[in-house]
Computed example of a mutant assay.
Amino acid sequence: MLSEENERKYKLRVELGEILRRNREAAGLTQLQLSRAIGLPGSRIVTHYERAKSPIPPRKWRPIAKALGMKPFPWVMKCAAAYCPDIYVQLFLNTDPSEASRLLNGLHASND
């Protein structure tokens, strides 16, 4: 049986997988097409992301948003809440959203 905190995290990850699947389908992409668009060799890992069986690594958050035509900031917020709750609290709950968005864009630009 999962602890209350682990149950909350699991539910967030399941929700994230459902959002990923719905947006992928809305974009008209197969799991394989999305996998290739984000630099993965096969569709299996996207299947695992969608079913909350594997965590979505932070380095894939923005590429997924881009490949699916999603606004990156809300997607990254949801990913951070699910996978990095301590960072999520520091970045998003204690910061003005426009400031947090600028910070994320600056970090992304420095990694390009």
Rank of each mutant, 00 (worst) to 15 (best):
E4L: 11
L2K: 15
R51N: 12
E25R: 02
P57Y: 04
E7Y: 04
G17E: 02
W61M: 06
L12E: 06
G39W: 13
A100D: 07
E50H: 05
F73R: 04
S98V: 13
S101A: 12
A80Y: 14
R44M: 03
N94C: 04
Q90D: 08
P97G: 11
E25S: 12
R59D: 11
K9V: 09
G106N: 08
S110R: 09
A67D: 00
S110Y: 04
D96I: 07
A81G: 08
R22S: 12
P72Q: 08
N94E: 15
S35K: 05
P72V: 02
K53H: 07
L29C: 07
L12N: 05
N111F: 01
P57M: 02
K71Q: 13
R102Q: 11
V76G: 01
S3T: 15
V89Y: 15
G42Y: 03
L91G: 00
L93I: 10
E15D: 13
G106P: 05
P63S: 06
K71V: 06
I56W: 01
K78W: 12
S3V: 10
H48D: 01
K66L: 14
L104I: 13
H48N: 06
L107A: 06
L20P: 00
K71H: 11
Y49M: 10
V46H: 11
S43W: 06
L34V: 05
Y88W: 13
G106Q: 07
A109M: 09
S43D: 13
P74Y: 00
S54G: 01
Q90C: 09
L2I: 06
F73K: 02
G17Q: 03
G69S: 11
N6H: 12
R21S: 12
K60W: 01
L16P: 03
N23R: 10
P57A: 02
S101T: 02
P97V: 09
I19V: 12
M77G: 01
S110E: 03
S101L: 13
L68R: 01
V46G: 06
P72M: 04
R51K: 14
L29G: 07
A100W: 01
E15W: 04
G106C: 05
A100G: 06
G106W: 01
R21W: 04
S101P: 02
R21Q: 11
K9W: 09
N94R: 15
R24V: 01
G17T: 08
E99C: 11
S3R: 09
G69T: 11
R51D: 03
Y83H: 10
E99L: 14
G17Y: 09
L103V: 04
I19H: 08
P63N: 04
A52M: 08
A26E: 15
I87W: 14
G17F: 10
P58G: 06
G28Q: 12
T47R: 11
T47K: 12
T47E: 01
E15H: 13
P85A: 07
T30E: 15
K71L: 05
A100F: 02
E4C: 00
Q31F: 07
E50C: 07
L107H: 06
W61G: 00
S3I: 11
P74F: 03
Q31W: 09
E4H: 07
R51T: 15
P85Q: 10
L104A: 02
G28P: 14
Y83D: 00
L20C: 04
F92G: 02
L104H: 06
G39Y: 12
G69L: 03
V14F: 03
